[in-house]
């Protein structure tokens, strides 16, 4: 049990690298790509952590949908200049200091780990743990009400997104809820300044 698992080590290190790359990249598209990579790595992490269903869901939802949406918007909005100057006095250094403390504290807490399973059986994870069947069972029995509520939230968010992005001064054709259509009507961005 001791020592770092090599697969986890590699994936975790890559996850950190991509995360840092995401926040440091000057180009938003690059950021988004780092993010996609990060989400992919997270999916692998989920696999390693006995959550195959979540891994797939992560891939589909985050990498397949959310980040595509982000990329769409980035392209829709066109040129994004990297804003390097810091207009808020002291923000950068204060933030770094606070983040240092917070990160240290969080890592310190995380290093404590979590108590093992109540039954004491830490080593063996049942093969069905985290499988779609198990997840489906949980979602549609114990958590069915939250599940429905969440689906309602999605619906509301969808409508909300359409309403928010659908400005009157835009031509009828544009529906921000469906960025693909909107994309056609906008100016063409360029990747480079």
């Amino acid at each position: 049990m001791s020592g770092l698992d090599p697969a986890f080590l590699i994936v975790g290190a890559l996850a950190i690298v991509t995360a840092v790359g995401m926040i440091l990249a000057k180009n938003v598209v690059h950021s988004a790509l780092f993010m996609v990579a990060h989400f992919g790595l997270t999916a692998v992490l989920y696999l390693l952590l006995s959550a195959p269903f979540l891994a797939a869901a992560q891939l589909i939802v985050y990498a397949g949908a959310i980040m595509v949406l982000v990329l769409f918007v980035v392209m829709l909005l066109g040129r994004q200049e990297a804003l390097l100057d810091e207009p808020i006095v002291g923000q950068r250094w204060l933030a770094l200091a606070a983040l240092g403390v917070l990160g240290a504290a969080l890592v310190r807490v995380a290093a404590l780990g979590v108590p093992a399973a109540p039954e004491g059986g830490t080593a063996v994870v049942p093969p069905a743990f985290g499988s779609p069947a198990a997840m489906g069972d949980a979602l549609y029995t114990q958590w069915v009400l939250p599940f429905e509520v969440v689906s309602l939230v999605l619906l509301v968010a969808m409508i909300g997104a359409v309403v928010i992005a659908h400005f009157q001064r835009r031509p009828r054709n544009e529906k921000a809820g469906n960025p693909a259509i909107a994309a056609d009507a906008t100016e063409i961005p360029s990747p480079r300044a």
Binding site: Q91, L102, L106
Partner: peptide
């Protein structure tokens, strides 16, 4: 600036975490 408010939250969280730890 939203970021400043966020910074406030983070400083508070960091202080709280540091204090507890």
């Amino acid at each position: 600036y939203v970021r400043t408010y966020g910074l406030g939250i983070v400083i508070g969280a960091a202080a709280l975490a540091a204090w507890l730890l």
